[in-house]
Protein backbone atom coordinates (compact mmCIF):
# COMPACT_ATOMS: atom_id res chain seq x y z
CA UNK A 1 0.00 0.00 0.00
CA UNK A 2 1.36 3.45 -0.90
CA UNK A 3 1.80 5.84 1.96
CA UNK A 4 1.57 9.60 1.68
CA UNK A 5 3.20 11.34 4.65
CA UNK A 6 2.83 8.13 6.62
CA UNK A 7 -0.90 7.83 5.93
CA UNK A 8 -2.15 5.03 3.65
CA UNK A 9 -3.27 6.55 0.33
CA UNK A 10 -6.82 5.07 0.40
CA UNK A 11 -7.44 6.60 3.82
CA UNK A 12 -6.19 9.94 2.56
CA UNK A 13 -8.46 9.86 -0.49
CA UNK A 14 -11.38 9.00 1.74
CA UNK A 15 -10.59 11.94 3.97
CA UNK A 16 -10.33 14.32 1.02
CA UNK A 17 -13.74 13.21 -0.16
CA UNK A 18 -15.22 13.69 3.30
CA UNK A 19 -13.63 17.13 3.44
CA UNK A 20 -15.40 17.97 0.20
CA UNK A 21 -18.73 16.79 1.64
CA UNK A 22 -18.34 18.95 4.75
CA UNK A 23 -17.21 21.78 2.51
CA UNK A 24 -20.53 21.50 0.67
CA UNK A 25 -22.36 22.25 3.94
CA UNK A 26 -20.06 25.15 4.74
CA UNK A 27 -20.53 26.54 1.24
CA UNK A 28 -24.32 26.29 1.36
CA UNK A 29 -24.57 27.88 4.79
CA UNK A 30 -22.07 30.63 4.11
CA UNK A 31 -23.84 31.34 0.83
CA UNK A 32 -26.98 32.41 2.68
CA UNK A 33 -24.95 34.54 5.06
CA UNK A 34 -23.04 36.14 2.21
CA UNK A 35 -26.23 36.94 0.31
CA UNK A 36 -27.75 38.60 3.37
CA UNK A 37 -24.61 40.53 4.25
CA UNK A 38 -23.75 41.48 0.68
CA UNK A 39 -27.19 42.80 -0.15
CA UNK A 40 -28.57 43.96 3.20
CA UNK A 41 -25.45 44.72 5.22
CA UNK A 42 -26.87 42.67 8.08
CA UNK A 43 -24.65 40.16 9.90
CA UNK A 44 -27.25 37.45 10.35
CA UNK A 45 -26.34 35.69 13.60
CA UNK A 46 -29.70 33.90 13.59
CA UNK A 47 -28.48 31.85 10.62
CA UNK A 48 -27.58 28.83 12.77
CA UNK A 49 -31.02 28.87 14.39
CA UNK A 50 -32.65 29.13 10.95
CA UNK A 51 -30.57 26.15 9.76
CA UNK A 52 -31.80 24.23 12.81
CA UNK A 53 -35.40 25.30 12.06
CA UNK A 54 -35.09 23.80 8.59
CA UNK A 55 -34.15 20.43 10.08
CA UNK A 56 -36.93 20.64 12.68
CA UNK A 57 -39.57 21.62 10.12
CA UNK A 58 -38.53 18.58 8.05
CA UNK A 59 -39.02 16.42 11.14
CA UNK A 60 -42.38 18.07 11.92
CA UNK A 61 -43.64 17.62 8.36
CA UNK A 62 -42.92 13.91 8.63
CA UNK A 63 -44.22 13.53 12.17
CA UNK A 64 -47.39 15.60 12.02
CA UNK A 65 -48.29 15.72 8.31
CA UNK A 66 -46.73 12.50 7.04
CA UNK A 67 -44.84 14.44 4.34
CA UNK A 68 -41.54 12.79 3.42
CA UNK A 69 -38.04 14.10 2.80
CA UNK A 70 -38.74 15.24 -0.78
CA UNK A 71 -41.65 17.39 0.32
CA UNK A 72 -39.58 18.74 3.18
CA UNK A 73 -36.82 19.74 0.76
CA UNK A 74 -39.30 22.11 -0.90
CA UNK A 75 -41.67 23.05 1.92
CA UNK A 76 -39.24 23.56 4.82
CA UNK A 77 -37.19 26.30 3.06
CA UNK A 78 -40.45 27.99 2.00
CA UNK A 79 -41.91 27.94 5.52
CA UNK A 80 -38.73 29.02 7.25
CA UNK A 81 -38.12 31.60 4.51
CA UNK A 82 -41.58 32.99 5.21
CA UNK A 83 -40.66 33.20 8.88
CA UNK A 84 -37.55 35.12 7.79
CA UNK A 85 -39.72 37.53 5.80
CA UNK A 86 -41.79 38.12 8.91
CA UNK A 87 -38.68 38.81 11.01
CA UNK A 88 -37.34 41.19 8.37
CA UNK A 89 -40.60 43.12 8.07
CA UNK A 90 -41.24 43.46 11.79
CA UNK A 91 -37.72 43.94 13.17
CA UNK A 92 -34.66 43.77 10.97
CA UNK A 93 -35.86 46.33 8.41
CA UNK A 94 -35.76 48.98 11.13
CA UNK A 95 -32.02 48.58 11.58
CA UNK A 96 -30.72 49.13 8.03
CA UNK A 97 -29.80 52.74 8.72
CA UNK A 98 -27.95 51.95 11.94
CA UNK A 99 -24.51 50.51 12.59
CA UNK A 100 -23.85 46.81 11.75
CA UNK A 101 -23.59 46.09 15.45
CA UNK A 102 -27.33 46.58 16.01
CA UNK A 103 -28.26 44.04 13.36
CA UNK A 104 -25.74 41.62 14.82
CA UNK A 105 -27.12 42.00 18.34
CA UNK A 106 -30.74 41.69 17.23
CA UNK A 107 -30.16 38.57 15.13
CA UNK A 108 -27.94 37.04 17.84
CA UNK A 109 -30.75 37.55 20.36
CA UNK A 110 -33.33 36.15 17.96
CA UNK A 111 -31.12 33.10 17.42
CA UNK A 112 -30.90 32.47 21.17
CA UNK A 113 -34.66 32.86 21.61
CA UNK A 114 -35.48 30.50 18.72
CA UNK A 115 -33.02 27.92 20.04
CA UNK A 116 -34.46 28.23 23.56
CA UNK A 117 -38.03 27.75 22.35
CA UNK A 118 -37.11 24.59 20.46
CA UNK A 119 -35.15 23.25 23.43
CA UNK A 120 -38.08 23.84 25.76
CA UNK A 121 -40.47 22.16 23.36
CA UNK A 122 -38.40 19.24 22.09
CA UNK A 123 -35.65 18.74 24.69
CA UNK A 124 -31.93 18.75 24.12
CA UNK A 125 -31.23 15.16 23.10
CA UNK A 126 -32.46 15.48 19.55
CA UNK A 127 -34.91 13.68 17.30
CA UNK A 128 -34.42 10.87 14.79
CA UNK A 129 -34.78 11.52 11.05
CA UNK A 130 -34.18 8.76 8.53
CA UNK A 131 -32.28 8.93 5.27
CA UNK A 132 -34.91 8.65 2.48
CA UNK A 133 -35.05 5.08 1.12
CA UNK A 134 -34.12 6.21 -2.40
CA UNK A 135 -30.81 7.54 -1.12
CA UNK A 136 -29.90 5.04 1.56
CA UNK A 137 -27.17 2.49 1.04
CA UNK A 138 -23.62 3.05 -0.05
CA UNK A 139 -21.16 2.68 -2.90
CA UNK A 140 -17.98 0.74 -2.32
CA UNK A 141 -15.36 2.93 -3.95
CA UNK A 142 -12.53 0.53 -3.19
CA UNK A 143 -10.70 3.00 -0.97
CA UNK A 144 -13.78 3.80 1.09
CA UNK A 145 -17.40 3.07 1.79
CA UNK A 146 -19.30 6.04 0.39
CA UNK A 147 -22.88 6.57 1.58
CA UNK A 148 -25.09 7.54 -1.36
CA UNK A 149 -26.71 10.28 0.69
CA UNK A 150 -23.39 12.10 1.14
CA UNK A 151 -22.86 12.10 -2.62
CA UNK A 152 -26.32 13.56 -3.04
CA UNK A 153 -25.50 16.34 -0.56
CA UNK A 154 -22.41 17.40 -2.53
CA UNK A 155 -24.28 17.48 -5.84
CA UNK A 156 -27.31 19.34 -4.52
CA UNK A 157 -25.17 21.84 -2.64
CA UNK A 158 -23.03 22.53 -5.71
CA UNK A 159 -26.13 23.00 -7.90
CA UNK A 160 -27.69 25.32 -5.33
CA UNK A 161 -24.53 27.44 -5.06
CA UNK A 162 -24.30 27.75 -8.83
CA UNK A 163 -27.98 28.66 -9.11
CA UNK A 164 -27.71 31.38 -6.47
CA UNK A 165 -24.63 32.82 -8.13
CA UNK A 166 -26.39 32.84 -11.52
CA UNK A 167 -29.47 34.57 -10.09
CA UNK A 168 -27.46 37.33 -8.49
CA UNK A 169 -24.86 37.87 -11.19
CA UNK A 170 -26.71 37.11 -14.41
CA UNK A 171 -30.42 37.92 -14.02
CA UNK A 172 -32.37 41.15 -14.06
CA UNK A 173 -33.57 40.78 -10.50
CA UNK A 174 -29.97 40.12 -9.46
CA UNK A 175 -28.85 43.33 -11.14
CA UNK A 176 -31.60 45.29 -9.34
CA UNK A 177 -30.37 43.82 -6.11
CA UNK A 178 -26.76 44.70 -6.72
CA UNK A 179 -27.77 48.17 -7.82
CA UNK A 180 -29.84 48.80 -4.71
CA UNK A 181 -26.89 47.80 -2.54
CA UNK A 182 -24.82 50.46 -4.29
CA UNK A 183 -27.43 53.20 -4.26
CA UNK A 184 -30.89 52.37 -2.96
CA UNK A 185 -32.33 55.85 -3.48
CA UNK A 186 -31.46 55.87 -7.17
CA UNK A 187 -32.89 52.44 -7.80
CA UNK A 188 -36.07 53.44 -6.00
CA UNK A 189 -36.26 56.52 -8.22
CA UNK A 190 -36.49 54.16 -11.18
CA UNK A 191 -39.69 52.75 -9.71
CA UNK A 192 -38.32 49.58 -8.14
CA UNK A 193 -39.70 48.63 -4.75
CA UNK A 194 -36.40 48.41 -2.85
CA UNK A 195 -37.82 47.53 0.62
CA UNK A 196 -39.69 44.58 -0.89
CA UNK A 197 -36.52 43.50 -2.67
CA UNK A 198 -34.67 43.58 0.66
CA UNK A 199 -37.39 41.56 2.36
CA UNK A 200 -37.30 38.90 -0.34
CA UNK A 201 -33.52 38.76 -0.21
CA UNK A 202 -33.53 38.14 3.53
CA UNK A 203 -36.24 35.51 3.07
CA UNK A 204 -34.14 33.81 0.36
CA UNK A 205 -31.02 33.81 2.54
CA UNK A 206 -32.99 32.26 5.40
CA UNK A 207 -34.51 29.71 3.02
CA UNK A 208 -30.99 28.68 1.97
CA UNK A 209 -30.13 28.05 5.63
CA UNK A 210 -33.30 25.98 6.07
CA UNK A 211 -32.48 24.04 2.88
CA UNK A 212 -29.09 23.13 4.35
CA UNK A 213 -30.92 22.15 7.54
CA UNK A 214 -33.13 19.67 5.65
CA UNK A 215 -30.04 18.22 3.94
CA UNK A 216 -28.37 17.86 7.35
CA UNK A 217 -31.34 16.29 9.16
CA UNK A 218 -30.68 12.65 8.15
CA UNK A 219 -26.95 12.70 8.95
CA UNK A 220 -26.78 14.85 12.08
CA UNK A 221 -28.97 14.41 15.10
CA UNK A 222 -31.83 16.93 14.77
CA UNK A 223 -31.35 18.96 17.95
CA UNK A 224 -31.78 22.60 18.96
CA UNK A 225 -28.06 23.30 19.26
CA UNK A 226 -27.10 21.82 15.87
CA UNK A 227 -26.90 25.26 14.29
CA UNK A 228 -24.88 26.99 16.97
CA UNK A 229 -22.17 24.32 16.64
CA UNK A 230 -21.73 25.08 12.94
CA UNK A 231 -22.35 28.80 12.77
CA UNK A 232 -19.00 30.00 14.11
CA UNK A 233 -17.11 27.98 11.49
CA UNK A 234 -19.43 29.26 8.80
CA UNK A 235 -18.78 32.83 9.87
CA UNK A 236 -15.07 32.18 9.56
CA UNK A 237 -15.71 30.86 6.04
CA UNK A 238 -17.56 34.04 5.11
CA UNK A 239 -14.83 36.25 6.55
CA UNK A 240 -12.07 34.34 4.75
CA UNK A 241 -14.02 34.41 1.48
CA UNK A 242 -14.60 38.15 1.82
CA UNK A 243 -17.72 39.45 3.56
CA UNK A 244 -20.57 39.48 1.10
CA UNK A 245 -18.74 37.80 -1.78
CA UNK A 246 -20.94 34.97 -3.08
CA UNK A 247 -18.27 33.26 -5.15
CA UNK A 248 -15.76 33.76 -2.34
CA UNK A 249 -17.89 32.00 0.24
CA UNK A 250 -18.62 29.06 -2.06
CA UNK A 251 -14.97 28.46 -3.00
CA UNK A 252 -13.79 29.03 0.57
CA UNK A 253 -16.46 26.68 1.92
CA UNK A 254 -15.28 23.78 -0.22
CA UNK A 255 -11.60 24.65 0.27
CA UNK A 256 -11.81 24.85 4.04
CA UNK A 257 -13.75 21.60 4.17
CA UNK A 258 -10.77 19.92 2.54
CA UNK A 259 -8.20 21.63 4.78
CA UNK A 260 -10.21 20.64 7.83
CA UNK A 261 -10.53 17.08 6.52
CA UNK A 262 -6.76 16.76 6.16
CA UNK A 263 -6.19 18.19 9.62
CA UNK A 264 -8.50 15.51 10.99
CA UNK A 265 -6.02 12.89 9.77
CA UNK A 266 -2.72 14.53 10.64
CA UNK A 267 -3.59 16.30 13.89
CA UNK A 268 -7.26 15.81 14.85
CA UNK A 269 -7.04 17.92 18.01
CA UNK A 270 -6.54 21.01 15.84
CA UNK A 271 -9.29 20.31 13.33
CA UNK A 272 -11.62 23.00 14.64
CA UNK A 273 -8.81 25.50 15.17
CA UNK A 274 -7.25 25.21 11.73
CA UNK A 275 -10.05 27.23 10.13
CA UNK A 276 -9.41 30.11 12.50
CA UNK A 277 -5.67 29.93 11.89
CA UNK A 278 -6.38 30.25 8.17
CA UNK A 279 -8.72 33.14 8.95
CA UNK A 280 -6.05 34.98 10.95
CA UNK A 281 -3.47 34.54 8.19
CA UNK A 282 -5.88 35.66 5.47
CA UNK A 283 -6.95 38.72 7.44
CA UNK A 284 -3.33 39.72 8.00
CA UNK A 285 -2.48 39.39 4.32
CA UNK A 286 -5.79 40.52 2.79
CA UNK A 287 -7.99 42.30 5.34
CA UNK A 288 -10.98 42.25 2.97
CA UNK A 289 -10.84 38.46 2.60
CA UNK A 290 -9.74 36.36 -0.38
CA UNK A 291 -12.43 37.56 -2.76
CA UNK A 292 -13.65 40.70 -1.00
CA UNK A 293 -13.37 44.25 -2.26
CA UNK A 294 -11.51 46.53 0.11
Amino acid sequence: MDDIFGIPAPLLFGQLLLGLINGAFYALLSLGLAVIFGMLNVINFAHGAQFMMGAFVAWMLLEYAGLNYWWALILAPLLVGLFGVLLERTMIARLYKLDHLYGLLLTFGLGLIIEGIFRNQYGSSGLPYRIPPQLSGAWDLGFMFMPIYRGWVVIVAAVMCLATWLVIEKTKIGSYLRASTENAALVQAFGINVPRLMTLTYGAGVALAAFAGVLAAPIYSVNPQMGSNLIIIVFAVVVIGGMGSILGSVITGFGLGIIEGLTKVFYPEASSTVIFVVMAIVLLARPAGLFGRA
Partner: peptide, 21 residues
Protein backbone atom coordinates in the same frame (compact mmCIF):
# COMPACT_ATOMS: atom_id res chain seq x y z
CA UNK B 1 -7.72 6.50 19.31
CA UNK B 2 -8.55 9.89 17.94
CA UNK B 3 -9.23 12.98 20.01
CA UNK B 4 -11.57 15.46 18.41
CA UNK B 5 -12.08 19.09 19.45
CA UNK B 6 -15.00 19.59 21.83
CA UNK B 7 -17.54 21.12 21.44
CA UNK B 8 -16.92 22.38 17.89
CA UNK B 9 -17.27 19.05 16.04
CA UNK B 10 -20.45 17.97 14.26
CA UNK B 11 -19.13 15.68 11.56
CA UNK B 12 -17.40 12.54 12.79
CA UNK B 13 -17.13 10.66 9.52
CA UNK B 14 -13.42 11.34 9.21
CA UNK B 15 -12.71 9.87 12.66
CA UNK B 16 -15.02 6.95 12.01
CA UNK B 17 -13.10 6.13 8.84
CA UNK B 18 -9.87 6.09 10.84
CA UNK B 19 -11.53 3.76 13.33
CA UNK B 20 -12.60 1.48 10.50
CA UNK B 21 -9.07 1.43 9.06
Amino acid sequence: SVRYPFPATTDFSSFLLQAQA
